[in-house]
Nucleic acid binder design. Structure first.
Lengths: 138, 138
DNA sequence: TCCATTCCCGACAAATATGCTATACTATTT
DNA sequence: AAATAGTATAGCATATTTGTCGGGAATGGA
């Protein structure tokens, strides 16, 4: 049970955009350099973020990405959902009454609650530091 | 962010043992048949459970596995931790003050709380049914 | 107009994880 | 001794993860 770099880097992008909110488009090159990540990989991750409407892009020189809403209006769950898949299982959990059902629901709801009540703005205003490359195991 | 069959089948084993608690050793063959799972695969999963002291084995004819403690004294977290990896990240989260740090801690604590307050006995006394093979996405 | 910058798109690939199967044991009970 | 059952290890097909690479297309500035 883990959150992969996909979700983590995705949050990194969103947090960086939140920090520069209102400053116009921010290029991925800058974010990649700032956090020492692969720009090409970030490009892959930002695709879904754009398609889901969390960020918008400006092409060309001096282009980049920017949040479509204020950092307070975007939750960590919005980002994780797009990059790591749905928080709620697509099928099975509602109709199947397996013994573990109650446990999965409890866990899902607990995680959901945290993800939905934590905004990108909250995270952007944490103390900043470098971005380690380890996998986070829950 | 998902829980794989490893953790799910592991819980299935533990729940089955909880249901037959006090009846002596239960062979994996029986559990595998009851839930229509591969016995050989369950054998792989029960290894870590034995090594971590959650179950003990009795070899030979009429042998099998049994819980080392009462079902109320074993939490879902005990099982998940063994099969899916540590709930707490091994390194990094404490000393690295990355922006997401607070979020990971909040999620970890929320999940941890659910896993630790839900006992195997709780799950064994849920309404029983078959065990679907889908992946559970959080 | 040309060019550097930047987003956009799709293919590919190495590494790891998942979900098993198979084999060959060893230990214990009857 | 034979049957039952656990133990250990290896292999393997598939999927996912974590990227890389190459080529476009749009844009702004010189």
């Amino acid at each position: 049970m883990k959150i992969s770099t996909k979700g983590r880097y995705g949050l990194t992008i969103m947090i960086s955009l939140a920090k520069h909110y209102g400053e116009g488009p921010i290029p991925l090159r800058k974010i990649a350099a700032e956090y020492d990540l692969s720009e090409a990989y970030l490009e892959q991750l930002v695709g879904p973020l754009r398609n889901s409407g969390l960020v918008k892009s400006v092409r060309g020189a001096y282009g980049g990405y920017m949040l479509t809403r204020g950092p307070k209006e975007i939750s960590a769950g919005d980002v994780i959902k797009v990059l790591e898949g749905p928080i709620q299982p697509v099928e099975g959990i509602e109709d199947e009454a397996q013994p573990q059902r109650e446990l999965w629901i409890r866990i899902r709801d607990a995680v959901k609650n945290v993800l939905e009540t934590t905004s990108i703005d909250d995270l952007a205003n944490q103390k900043d530091d470098n971005n380690e490359n380890y996998m986070f195991y829950i």
